[in-house]
């Protein structure tokens, strides 16, 4: 058979033959080269490189997980803080309300107390004033009486002269005798 490919190859005149000629020596050399390369690269490159890649991937994964966990924790703390704050606020509001109520009560109490006290003081003062008034009045009475007595005494003493009184007495006596 006139295979054109073989003719083509033969006409090239190469000592190594045609395109599809298999050279056993080259197969051997390729095998040796490849296996040596495989061994050297395995020792030198693939092992450390693949280990490093795995290590890096692991560290990235760990970091992501850690970050996730930290975020979750922060969220939890934030929520806790929020609820604590709300609780504290409620507490404060309660305390303020209580204080206000208490102060109101105290105010009222003090007010009534002071009112009572004032009333009492006013009453006392009134009684005192009454008493003093009475006292003054009594003194005045006494003085007036004594003054009146003194004055009448003086008047009496002044106006009692002999002739006048004699006439009065005479007249009196006359009246008596008439009756």
């Amino acid at each position: 058979m006139a295979n054109p490919l073989i003719a083509f190859a033969v006409s090239s005149g190469e000592s190594s033959g045609g395109l599809l000629d298999v050279n056993p020596g080259l197969i051997v050399w390729t095998g040796i080269t490849f296996l040596l390369l495989l061994y050297m690269l395995f020792k030198m490159a693939w092992k450390p490189i693949l280990n490093s890649l795995n290590e890096r991937e692991q560290s990235i994964k760990d970091s992501l997980e850690k970050a996730d966990k930290a975020r979750e924790e922060a969220q939890k703390i934030f929520e806790e803080n929020k609820s604590d704050l709300a609780k504290a606020e409620a507490e404060a509001r309660k305390i303020i309300a209580q204080g206000r109520e208490y102060s109101e009560k105290i105010k009222e109490q003090m007010l009534t107390e002071s009112k009572q006290q004032a009333q009492k003081m006013i009453d006392e003062a009134k009684a005192e004033i009454d008493r003093k008034n009475q006292e003054a009045l009594n003194k005045l009475k006494e003085q007036v009486v004594s003054l009146a007595v003194n004055a009448s005494e003086k008047i009496i003493r002044e106006s009692l002269d002999k002739e006048k009184h004699g006439k009065i007495v005479e007249k009196y006596l006359e009246d008596l005798s008439k009756n």
Partner: peptide, 15 residues
């Protein structure tokens, strides 16, 4: 091109 040689590719394929 070593890979354009049938012997080389055959060797790689055998491996």
């Amino acid at each position: 091109t070593a890979t354009s040689n049938i012997s080389v590719t055959a060797s790689l394929a055998i491996l």
